[in-house]
């Protein structure tokens, strides 16, 4: 999983009029990783992804994809790129098979076997026009179109938002199959954390237009924990732990969500306050909630 960064973003800022959406995003995604981009609505996930693909212009900072500036991507880089947007806009007057043929005509390499297999597996009606398709089918079709040319970088924006649980599990299974390739990089933005926990090996959390965390998912889970402190005497109101995300103090007990938990810290707390400390692990959703508290 070594190698140069497929996506290298440094200090990327993007404004929409007066509204600052991205305020200096620093992110570097290595080749072969599966990265989940997590953030609240309007945190700037879609904006960042669109900047990445050259659909929006970056106000300041550099954003490089495959080593090239994102606005001026060459044809070769685009042939390595696959994108599934949040709102899928496909020509509604074309039939499903026609749109596959149409898209295939643009790319130098196209895997018809994979495309046909997915269409069959996901029960997309090949003869139907795209307009009347349901949102879920449209998303699946968009995924087939993004996968057909075997892209090295696959970018997905809320790919499972409109899928029912069965379809979602199907989708994730396919994503896992794709992720097996060592050189393929996947970036997907979502707020369904359970999917991320299965599929992603790295997580990037976007808050207020900046990346507040980017590392392996396991590291995140091991470093952010909730401490349940029961002291022998009342804790002061200004009780604080270094790296605390959220603190609740009620008499002698306190509930603290801490980032960067170490054994030394726990021992220190135990001795300072003469307390018993329970360390609770947190799921990704809980971590996300704690990080966005206050």
């Amino acid at each position: 999983m070594t190698g140069e960064a497929v996506i290298a973003s440094q200090g990327v800022c993007k404004n929409f009029g007066d509204k600052k959406v991205l305020r200096g995003v620093d992110l570097s995604i290595p080749r072969g990783s599966v990265v989940g981009l997590l953030g609240k609505n309007a945190a700037g996930k879609t904006t960042f992804i669109k900047c990445l693909l050259g659909l929006l212009k970056v106000h300041s900072g550099t954003l490089r994809v495959f080593g090239e500036d994102s606005w001026w991507l060459t044809a070769e880089s685009k042939a390595q790129l696959g994108y599934v947007p949040q709102e899928v806009a496909l020509y509604p007057w074309m039939r499903v098979e026609q749109i596959l043929q149409y898209t295939a005509a643009f790319y130098p390499r196209w895997n018809w076997e994979l495309a046909h297999r997915l269409v069959r597996q996901w029960e997309l009606p090949p003869k139907d026009r795209v307009g009347p398709l349901s949102a879920g089918q449209l998303q699946k079709l968009a995924l087939v179109l993004a996968l057909g040319h075997k892209p090295e970088l696959l970018v997905l924006d809320e790919p499972v938002a409109s899928l029912d649980p069965v379809a979602r599990r199907d989708f994730l299974r396919t994503l896992l199959e794709i992720a097996q390739s060592e050189t393929r990089t996947i970036l997907f933005s979502t707020h369904i954390t359970s999917d991320l926990e299965r599929v992603a090996d790295r997580v990037a959390i976007l808050r207020d237009g900046q990346i507040v965390f980017h590392d392996e998912l396991d590291v995140l889970k091991e470093s952010v924990k909730r401490l349940r402190i029961t002291a022998s005497r009342d804790l002061p109101a200004a009780f604080a732990v270094r790296g605390a995300l959220r603190t609740e103090v009620a008499g002698p007990s306190a509930l603290v969500a801490v980032s960067g938990v170490t054994g030394a810290m726990i021992d220190d707390l135990r001795t300072t306050w003469d307390a018993t400390i329970d360390v609770e692990p947190l799921s990704l959703e809980d971590i996300f909630l704690e990080m966005h508290h206050g």
């Binding site: 954390t193 926990e197 299965r198 396991d218 692990p281 799921s283 990704l284």
Partner: peptide, 9 residues
Amino acid sequence: PSSGVPIYR
């Protein structure tokens, strides 16, 4: 996957 314990662990 959603437990606080990392999957590898």
